[in-house]
Every structure is written in structure tokens, then in C-alpha cells.
Design a protein around this nucleic acid. Sequence first.
DNA 1: AAATTGAACAGGAAAAACCCCTATTCTATA
DNA 2: TATAGAATAGGGGTTTTTCCTGTTCAATTT
Lengths: 214, 214
Amino acid sequence: MIKYTVVIVDDHTLLSQAIEGMVNSFAKFKVLYTCKNGKELTEKFSESAKFIPDIVLMDINMPIMNGIETTEWIVANYPSVDVMALSVEDDDNTILKMLKVGAIGYLLKDTEKTVLEKALTEIAENGFYHTKNITNLLIESFTGKRKAEIAFKERELTFLKLACSELTYKEIADQMCLSPKTIDGYRDTLFTKLNVKNRVGLVMYAIKNKIYTP
Amino acid sequence: MIKYTVVIVDDHTLLSQAIEGMVNSFAKFKVLYTCKNGKELTEKFSESAKFIPDIVLMDINMPIMNGIETTEWIVANYPSVDVMALSVEDDDNTILKMLKVGAIGYLLKDTEKTVLEKALTEIAENGFYHTKNITNLLIESFTGKRKAEIAFKERELTFLKLACSELTYKEIADQMCLSPKTIDGYRDTLFTKLNVKNRVGLVMYAIKNKIYTP
DNA sequence: AAATTGAACAGGAAAAACCCCTATTCTATA
DNA sequence: TATAGAATAGGGGTTTTTCCTGTTCAATTT
């Protein structure tokens, strides 16, 4: 029996090894190798064709090269490889981002072993898998019920990160080499865009959306 | 050969099942059952003596009854059971708190399968296990290099949580039925106590120390 | 009983944050 | 070429925050 090959990318060694054991216990699948981050994976892929698997199980929050970047790279360079995101806990926007860059499925932390097997099987045989949660997210996204993803400009993002520090706006202006009045502007547009009332609102948005990590 | 029995408490089903498989693959250990939170565990323990394991592998952040409460309960009622914290990512204070309430060891996310086996073996045979990181933490804690844990009054804590919202201090005063000037006082003492300069500092402190969860 | 402590409250003033509106420049695009 | 948009910044205002100093009252200590 030919087994589908799987590569696991995750910086949590324990989880990664545990999942490896799990996948290897499935009749139709076997783990080729595991990586601690996206960079390791790109190196493996580039090294030899025998390191290209059928499916990649990808964590999102990793140091060095995260899940989103890595997925983009795989989709661009090895379109035949299916990427399934496998995340411990992430917010809706991150999930959408993963799907947008080409992840073929998304598995949440609270899935059962049997669900993982089912998901892998569906991906291998039908080419897709989504949990119900994700399907709902997508539907909301397409029907526009879900608020459109907010686009940030580079400067706005820099400002937002600095707003999470104890600097005053004047000090932030200095850091960014801009007039305090420009900072005023960034702040005000962000207030409207993010629908918050004050700086605490900005900070909370930044944290919830992983723009700033405390 | 008599195997040591292990119970896993974790709300992440996948991780929990994966670790179960891993532990079962160790010659000296076998998993009795798994729980999704502390409450489930207390129920099992109380149901029958055959559900009391040698070792509990305990996650910390769980809904309903978290790792700290649960560990306290186990230590108080079943002192012969060794609790090892097994956390994906937590801050230093949480780790110390777990050890303080009686966890016998602490395993971090980036451990290897072999390390888990070594840790379980040491706990079963010697009664303790700590990773080097934790040892350092403890040393710092005892030598007082680490800043003493800050004590909060109930009102201060309520204020701190409200300060993480978009309310103005006047609105917070209303909520707490206090004069705005009293709130001024809480804020100022917290500024000194926590060594922060402004409200963003308060928010960050509250988040880092899990007083407020975004 | 007198002294001390600390929580609640408060006035005043300066600094920072917040709000709205306008204007210039540059670039992309219809 | 006209227009639209971003990025930048100024003017001038109100509100909130921050910082300092004090008072009162009740509980605790000595």
C-alpha cells in the first residue's frame, strides 16, 4: 500500500513529535520529517525532490518564518503540495489569512485524533477539508456579514505598535521622524477604522490581532 | 512489569491525545484516562480509587477549573499524587505559582519526547523533575533577584481590570461607585507600585500578568 | 489614650490626549 | 489633463490624564 507523505512544521517540539506519532499510526499516512520553522522547510524542499511531501501540516505562529509566509512560498513553488494549517489557538483573521494565501484546510486545537485522520484522508483524496467553524467563517466572509479585513499602511502599523508602549504621542512622532500632528492623524484614522474610542482601544486591537505581542 | 499510571488534563484534545499516545509508548508508563479540565478530574478522583494515578500531567490554562486550582485540590486531597505542569506557553509568574501550590515539575512546550520520558521517570522514581529554566527561575526567586510578587487589594484589581477597557477614569469611578479622585489615587499608587508611566503601562502589566485577558 | 496608618476624597494646575477642519505635495490613474 | 488618493502637517479647541498636596475619618498599634 502506498502511503501519503506528510511533513509537520511546528516549533512546539512536543506537539510536533506527538502528532508525528499519531499520523504514523494512520494506515494511509506516514511522516517524512518534521521542521521547527518555515526556513527549515524551504531548505529541505530545495535540497531534494524526495523531501517534497503530499501534505504539509503547518503551525502558524513560528519564529524565523511563520506559517503564512511559508504557505505562500509552498503555493508559489510547489503547487502540488497541500498545506493544512494546524493551529493551537488563533483568531478568525489569521485563519482567513491562511486560507487566502492558499492553505487547503484548517484544523483547530480541539480536534480529535479521528478528525485529523478524516481531514488528512479528505485532503489526500478530495483535495480539501474544512471544519464546520471554518466553513461558517468563509460564508460570513463572502456574504459580507463579516467586517472586511482591515488594510493597514506600513506607517500606521509602525505607529500602532509604538502606541502599545508607554511613549507619548510626541515621543512616538520623534521616533518615527514625523510631526506630532501627523501622528494625530494616524491615531484619528485608526480610531475610526478600528472603531475604538481611545488609546486603550488601539492597544487592545493590536494585541487581539497579534500586531503587538506583549 | 508494573507500569506507573498517568492522567492527562488538557482542554486541547489533539495535544492531549497525542501526548497520550506518546506516554503509552513509554515502557514504564500508561495513561489511565484524560480530562478536559480540572472539574472532570475531581469527579473521576472522587468516583473510585482506581481512578487515582501516580502522576498527573496538567495544563494550566483551562476553562472551568484551571491548573492552579486543580493542583491545589490534588495536593490537599491526594498528596501521594505527583502533579507535573505541562504548558504550551506561560510566563514566569504562572510557573512559579504552579510550583508554589505544589506541582512537582514543569515541562515547557519545546521539550522533546525523550525529555518527557526522562521527566516522568525521574518523578516516578525520585519524586521531582525540573528543566534547567525552572531551576534558574527558582534560584532567582529565592535569592531575591527576582522582584517580589506584588500584592493587590481587591479594589485596585477591579480598577486595573476596568482600566483595560475604553472607559475614562470618570466612567470607571461611576462603575465602582467611587469619586473620580479616589480613582486618581488608585491609578497613582499603581503607577508607582508597578513602575509604569501611564495607562498603557497599566494595561500591559494587567495583560502580562493575566489580570486581564484580552 | 495617643500616635500611626491607610483608605477615601478633593483642589489645582500642567501635560497629554482627543477632535475637527483645512492645506500642501506627490503620485497614480481615468 | 483633470482628478483622486495617500502622506504629511498646521490651527485651535475641549476633555482627560497625570501629578502634587492636603483633609477627614476610622481602624490598628503602642
